[in-house]
């Protein structure tokens, strides 16, 4: 996967995770879910950024 495509994929994964219907599935614990998913998403971005930097 090229660098640009990787970032677009991560963006789409985030968009899905932060939107309906996923939010409706975790309705009862949506507050906790949002913070956990948010932290994981940032972690994923950091790992991808480091990996991208190494490739260059």
């Amino acid at each position: 996967m090229k660098n640009k495509e990787l970032w677009i994929f991560i963006f789409l994964a985030g968009l899905l995770g932060f939107s309906w219907p996923v939010l409706a599935i975790v309705r009862d614990g949506v507050g906790t879910y949002l913070f956990v998913f948010w932290a994981l998403f940032i972690g994923l971005a950091a790992v991808a950024a480091r990996a991208g930097g190494r490739q260059r």
Partner: peptide, 13 residues
């Protein structure tokens, strides 16, 4: 804050 987080991963593009 979630919006900018999502947008940030598109910054390299």
């Amino acid at each position: 804050y979630i919006g900018p987080t999502l947008m940030a991963v598109l910054w390299p593009v």
